[in-house]
């Protein structure tokens, strides 16, 4: 099962909405979280190597139909859109996990994949929260996956160039950082065929898990501010030797390099 999430497309500058409690959603376009695209690719690769069934699941978010049909065109077997969630507003990750958890539990997939993080969940909490709600093992920053019987061999990136390989007994929840190949292309003719075939399942979202976390999830946003613009670009000119010396000085003065 792959969990997909729509995010505002950053070709457009985001602005606070008139009441200041959300971004202005009126003029922005939405786009699939790039890490979720990696998760989908990894799921399809896994399907090809070990014959799984791939189900993609998304909340009813703007422009999500096209994303789900694209997933079907790429080779997913089922696409589910969960309706009845608060539309047109921000769904905090805690709430998202609480909505998805009962649904995941009901379908009981062998493996749940999602993007390691997203622009609004930079800490990558979704996979671990879901793991927590479902009482399943979870791993984040996954860059390698191999499934055999009910064991997943997982490579996790630890930072500073280090990674660890481990075995996880399925079912499990994984936050995917990178698939083993670049996300494939679905020819538009195939996406349109999928749209015409209309295989999208619309299901009522289950009631969110009742838990103390939900209270935390109901964060109330008092005010959003546009980031202040800083203009600190300094152009270095002169011959390459001088420029190199300047760069070295700057790096040293900021404490970025020693000696």
């Amino acid at each position: 099962m792959v969990l997909l999430k729509q995010l505002p497309d950053l070709v457009e500058e985001l602005e606070p909405s008139p009441d200041g409690t959300d971004i202005d959603r009126e003029f922005i376009k939405f786009i699939l979280n790039e890490f979720d695209d990696q998760a989908l690719e990894e799921a399809l690769v896994t399907k090809e190597s070990s014959g799984a069934e791939v189900i993609v699941v998304a909340l009813d978010e703007p422009e999500v139909d096209q994303v789900l049909y694209t997933a079907l065109a790429k080779g997913a077997d089922r696409a589910v859109k969960l309706t009845g969630v608060p539309a047109g507003t921000w769904v905090p990750t805690h709430l998202r996990a609480a909505i998805l958890a009962p649904f995941v539990r009901e379908l009981a997939p062998d493996l749940v994949l999602t993007g390691v993080q997203s622009a609004e969940d930079l800490d990558g909490q979704l996979a671990s929260l879901l793991g927590g709600y479902l009482d399943l093992p979870h791993a984040a920053v996954v860059v390698g996956l191999e499934v055999k019987d009910s064991i997943a061999r997982v490579v996790q990136e630890l930072g500073s160039g280090r990674s660890v390989e481990e075995q996880i007994t399925l079912p499990a929840v994984l936050g995917i950082q990178a698939a083993s190949q670049a996300p494939r292309y679905a020819p538009i003719s195939k996406i349109r065929q999928a749209m015409q075939a209309g295989g999208l399942e619309e299901l009522e979202a289950p009631a969110p898990v009742d838990s103390a976390d939900i209270a935390i999830a109901q964060v109330r946003i008092r005010r959003l501010y546009a980031p202040e613009k800083s203009t600190h670009a300094e152009m270095l000119t002169g011959d390459p030797g001088e420029v190199a010396t300047r760069i070295a000085e700057i790096l040293r003065s900021k404490g970025l390099v020693k000696a």
Binding site: V11, I28, E63, Q66, I191
Partner: peptide, 25 residues
């Protein structure tokens, strides 16, 4: 499934936004 990545990006943008630059319609 064989398409150069640069072109794939433009196709996807065109399909999503109706223009090859991926700009807001």
């Amino acid at each position: 499934g064989m398409v150069p990545a640069e072109l794939q990006d433009v196709f996807e943008k065109t399909f999503r936004n109706g223009n090859c630059l991926g700009e807001n319609p």
